[in-house]
């Protein structure tokens, strides 16, 4: 038999509100559960005697103290929960968690994007600087190589300019200088070839026309005369006519000059 049920029976047996018949029935059940008949009667007597004991009245002061302590306790609890506790609990509310995650993601993403785009800008600037430096270095290399005593190196220097996307006036002036002053006819030929790519530039065109009378090698003379015909440079007629006045002019060059003057 369960202890709780027995205790419940005992409480009902001692209560003054039940009828005599019920009392007898409960008494029987309790005796069956192991209680003595006299033990039960003693309990009944003790219980009835309890009612007769005087219970002293509680003072107002005690009540006030009790309720004040209770209020203080309540305040202390509510204080804690309203600041830190409330904050913590608010943080863990679902919508704040979402907002917080969202803003954190934004910050991280923004930082990454910033550093990434910064890197791209840096790289672009670096690439630009490097290509500028390379082109400057190449130009310096061309000047240095054009000063070399080896004709092979001078030809190589001119062929470097072929790789240039953009050529500036300084390089073109240097090539004009090479065309008029280099001791090797093959280097001068290479200069004619390099300059022939820039017929739209006025000073190159003029330089090429003026150079005709400065050349002694028939190889270079022929190259320039060919170029005049190709560019249909009518301004060169004067130079070509004066070239014919040279008695020592090579036979092939002479006939080519005459033909070119006729075609122009």
């Amino acid at each position: 038999m369960k202890k709780e049920i027995i205790e419940k029976w005992m409480a009902e047996f001692l209560s003054p509100d039940i009828s005599e018949g019920e009392k007898e029935e409960l008494k029987g059940k309790l005796i069956q559960s192991g209680y003595d008949k006299f033990e039960l009667e003693d309990m009944e007597n003790l219980y009835s005697m309890l009612d007769e004991i005087d219970v002293p009245e509680t003072s107002n002061k005690l009540d006030m103290n009790f309720y004040r302590s209770l209020e203080l306790y309540k305040d202390a609890i509510s204080d804690k929960s309203s600041h830190f506790g409330a904050f913590i609990s608010s943080i863990f509310k679902k919508k704040y968690v979402l907002r917080f995650t969202y803003s954190l993601t934004l910050v991280v993403f923004g930082w990454y994007l910033g550093s990434w785009s910064g890197r791209i800008d840096n790289n672009n600037v670096k690439i630009q600087l490097m290509s500028q430096e390379i082109s400057q270095m190449r130009q310096v290399m061309i000047y240095t190589m054009l000063d070399q005593p080896s004709a092979m190196k001078r030809i190589k220097a001119i062929s470097y300019a072929d790789e240039f996307e953009n050529v500036d006036d300084k390089i073109l002036n240097t090539f004009l200088d090479t065309l008029n002053n280099d001791p090797n006819p093959n280097v001068r030929l290479a200069a004619v070839e390099a300059l022939s790519r820039f017929p739209d530039i006025q000073f190159v065109r003029e330089g090429l026309v003026k150079s005709i009378l400065k050349q002694e090698s028939p190889l270079v003379q022929v190259a320039l005369i060919d170029l005049m015909l190709k560019l249909k440079e009518k301004a060169s007629k004067k130079e070509l006519t004066r070239l014919l006045e040279n008695r020592d002019l090579n036979y092939s060059v002479r006939s080519k000059t005459q033909e070119t003057i006729r075609l122009l």
Partner: peptide
């Protein structure tokens, strides 16, 4: 085909040579 650009005039020259 020779295609060359010049820095200042920004002109592009295309020639068919012999």
């Amino acid at each position: 085909i020779n295609i060359r650009k010049h820095k200042n005039t920004r002109s592009t020259n295309i020639t068919l040579d012999g």
